[in-house]
């Protein structure tokens, strides 16, 4: 048990914080909704109803999609783009998908490489892009979920105000959908860009997200 915790400290800690903050979001979200209901002389809804409703899930998916887009785009961009001096970049000169030798593919695979790295053909091609594909699929699925749940929330609001409801294809062209989407994207891109450039000159001793404290500013990709 202790070994399990030690071996999985990062994923356990973030998983726990994720669940705690999700519960916090649910409690505060339900309270915010019921406060608005009270202001408009509407009926309050139960906590159980709120956490199973599109109101809650549209908000959850809206944030999920932007996080997964951020990582998907970052995984993709860092194949091709370099930031000199950044720990978040590859070394200059290694831009691109790199050789089979550098990536330990086919005959260059070692005995303990994942099997699909060595077998060649479609399995190696698929496995070579599996992280980007899975992160990208989660992004697309959560963005779709945001649009589907967001439309229900939008239509409920429209009905409350005796306004016409909209179809899904119409909803994805509304400013409501794009405002929910872009307000999340902009912050993700700023944070990623900051991480890329701040790690050139700033350090955190002991973190692999930083270069070693004594590493020169000009050194690119040297995890501490």
């Amino acid at each position: 048990m202790l070994r399990f915790v030690r071996d999985n400290g990062l994923s356990l800690a973030f998983g726990a914080v994720f669940l705690a903050t999700l519960v916090g979001q649910a409690i505060s979200g339900a309270d915010t909704f019921n406060h608005a209901q009270a202001l408009h002389n509407g009926d309050p809804i139960s906590f159980g109803h709120y956490v199973t409703s599109a109101l809650f899930w549209a908000d959850v998916m809206e944030n999920w999609q932007s996080e997964y887009l951020q990582f998907t785009l970052y995984i993709f961009a860092t194949i091709w783009l370099i930031q000199k001096g950044s720990n978040e970049s590859k070394k200059p000169g290694r831009a691109g998908r790199e050789s089979a030798e550098q990536q330990l593919l086919g005959e260059h695979a070692s005995p303990d490489s994942p099997r699909w790295a060595g077998v060649g053909g479609w399995r190696t091609a698929l496995y070579s892009n599996s992280l980007l594909m899975v992160m990208g699929a989660i992004w697309i699925a959560s963005w779709l979920a945001q649009s589907l749940a967001g439309r229900i929330v939008y239509n409920a609001d429209q009905l409350d105000h005796q306004a016409p409801t909209v179809s899904w294809p119409t909803y994805v062209t509304t400013s409501d959908f794009w405002n929910r989407t872009l307000q999340n994207w902009q912050s993700e891109f700023l944070a990623v860009g900051s991480m890329v450039i701040l790690s050139v000159y700033l350090r955190q001793r002991g973190s692999p997200e930083s270069k070693p404290v004594g590493a020169p500013h000009s050194e690119t990709a040297s995890s501490g």
């Binding site: 356990l12 199973t52 779709l144 229900i152």
Partner: peptide, 30 residues
């Protein structure tokens, strides 16, 4: 590595379950 594989599976199941629920909710709740 067995415990790491378990964490990997837990994360994937959690994510897929959340996505599946939200998509189903979005399609079914009109």
């Amino acid at each position: 590595m067995r415990s790491v594989r378990l964490m990997f599976a837990i994360y994937l199941v959690l994510i897929v379950a959340g996505l599946a629920y939200a998509i189903a909710l979005g399609i079914l709740e009109h």
